[in-house]
Design a protein around this nucleic acid. Structure first.
Length: 500
DNA sequence: CGATTTTGACCGGCGC
DNA sequence: GCGCCGGTCAAAATCG
């Protein structure tokens, strides 16, 4: 969440504003107050000074409000962390007991480790991702996600201890540092990265003014109180939340959305064609929309892989209807990464990080190692294509993906539209709401098909997926509906998933 | 000094 | 053909 990031004041245009994150802004605000004390010299000047004083007071009031928000935010984060910690301990306990009973030789170590995790020591990581069948850890799944159908082959919602490698280690030296530490504390696994991404990108794209100087300053505000994290994040000039290195190559203010859209290019490999667009939702600036496009021509870093797993799992979860209410509620309540996929595409992930629920719509190609999900992006995309009468079109290797990063859990936002209504929209009942029915239609069809398609071998019309992604990113109504729908999924758990 | 971001300009697609 | 719009380029600025 970007509690701290979100400033009541509108975002300014970024140009030349090496704006600092809110925290910094707050800090700088105080001095202003003191500086503005009048230096009486004539009536005019006195009045002027009084005006300044008034302004300063007002500003101070704002700062106080913000401070309050930050405090409450911090409190919430702490609470969440404690809840999570408690839950984690429970999980560990259960797991140990189970292990002791079964005395499984190769049983997962003491801790319900995440797949890639070998050493359950340092970091606590929550992960939701696809797993190789062998790597699955039922006890773990059961406890954390409690998805009765956790068996659903590729899907697993994990609560584990990550160290060095694996989901949380994701980050390479650069930006990593930033999120790595974060993972253990509040941000969980890929989710944490999402959060970081969200915040950073938010600054870049939506809150240009806060773009550079403190990449994660905003993030820090949102994620909470981890100075080290923030500092390290500051060093990172490349956003690698999803495990890849991204270089910004452009920014545009698109029509219909005051928030600029940032364009990033994958720099992991020299000529990687993958692009990424990040834009805040015009309707609710706390919502960050990221759209991926292209296909990596290189091996994905662990982090990216983890991300892929996560989204894949998310897709599998919803499409398979394996999401149990307990899992959903648990994830939500405890801010564990939650994937509620299948709403819009192959992978629409809703993850609630410590403080930053994230919705991820991932239409990307499944990472080979993680392509366990039944509803591959291709399949889904193909479905969408079919729905849009694009079936006949040949499909280049290109693909597009996007994920909606819901960077803020605002009750008000949730309340905007009833979940049921939103679901209706998503699932075909809300055409009237969307200014672009065809988009809804595409998503709907896509959704319908997604759940039915087994393997993803269909051809994909890039145009279709692009359209889909754009539709989502450009239509506030749709975004709202999506968010609300996902919220409903989170809240009602399997019930919502079952609605499919 | 290299890597990255910023930002105005340019280009191509699309609708009128 | 023209203008709008989105996406990309590339020079300048900035940062570590």
């Amino acid at each position: 969440m970007e509690v701290a990031v979100e400033r009541p004041t509108p975002v300014k245009e970024e140009k030349g504003t090496d704006a600092k994150p809110e925290m910094a802004a707050i800090g700088s605000a105080l001095p202003i107050v003191f500086e503005s004390f009048p230096s009486t010299q004539g009536d005019a000047s006195i009045k002027q000074e009084e005006r300044r004083l008034e302004a300063a007071k007002a500003e101070m009031g704002e700062v106080r409000e913000e401070n309050e928000r930050l405090k409450s935010m911090l409190t919430r984060i702490v609470n969440q962390y404690q809840l999570l910690h408690t839950h984690f301990l429970d999980v560990v306990k259960v797991h140990e007991q189970a292990a002791a009973k079964a005395k499984l030789p190769a049983a997962p170590a003491p801790a319900p480790a995440a797949d890639d995790v070998e050493d359950p020591d340092d970091l606590v990581s929550l992960s939701l991702g696809t797993r190789s069948n062998g790597a699955r850890r039922k006890g773990h799944e059961r406890s954390s996600s409690s998805s009765g159908t956790a068996d659903e082959s590729q899907l697993s919602l994990g609560l584990g201890i990550a160290r060095g490698s694996g989901l949380s280690s994701v980050e390479d030296d650069k930006a990593s540092g930033a999120s790595a530490p974060a993972a253990p504390v509040l941000n969980l696994s890929s989710d944490s990265s999402s959060a970081d991404d969200t915040t950073k990108l938010a600054q870049d794209a939506a809150a240009p003014g806060t773009s550079r100087k403190s990449p994660s300053g905003g993030a820090g505000t949102g994620e909470g109180a981890d100075d080290e994290v923030q500092q390290q994040a500051k060093k990172a000039r490349v956003s690698m939340p999803d495990g890849c290195q991204w270089r910004k190559y452009g920014q545009k203010i698109s029509k219909g959305n005051p928030c600029p859209r940032a364009y990033y290019r994958c720099t992991v490999a020299p000529h990687c064609p993958v692009r990424k667009q990040v834009q805040r939702c015009a309707d609710d600036t706390s919502i960050l929309i990221t759209t991926y496009e292209g296909q990596h021509n290189h091996q994905l870093p662990p982090a990216a892989t983890a991300m892929a797993s996560t989204t894949s799992a998310a897709a599998a979860m919803l499409t398979s209807g394996s999401t149990t209410s307990s899992a959903a509620s648990l994830a939500h309540g405890h801010h564990l990464p939650l994937a509620a996929a299948g709403l819009l595409g192959p992978t629409t992930m809703v993850s609630t990080a410590a403080s930053c629920p994230t919705i991820t719509l991932d239409l990307t190609t499944p990472a080979p190692p993680h392509s366990l999900m039944h509803s591959s992006p291709y399949a889904a995309a193909a479905a969408a294509a079919a729905a849009a009468d694009y079936e006949s079109k040949a499909v280049p290797a290109a693909w597009s993906s996007g994920y909606l990063a819901y960077g803020g859990a605002h009750p008000s936002y949730y309340a905007k539209s009833s979940p049921a209504l939103a679901m209706g929209h998503l699932f075909g009942g809300g055409l009237g709401v969307s200014s672009r029915p065809e988009q809804i239609y595409g998503a709907q069809s896509y959704l319908q098909r997604t759940s039915s398609l087994g393997g993803g071998h269909g051809a994909v019309a890039p145009a279709v997926t692009d359209t889909l992604a754009k539709a989502i990113t450009s239509d506030p109504s749709f975004q709202s509906a999506l968010a609300a729908a996902i919220t409903s999924v989170i809240g009602s758990g399997g019930a919502a998933a079952a609605q499919k």
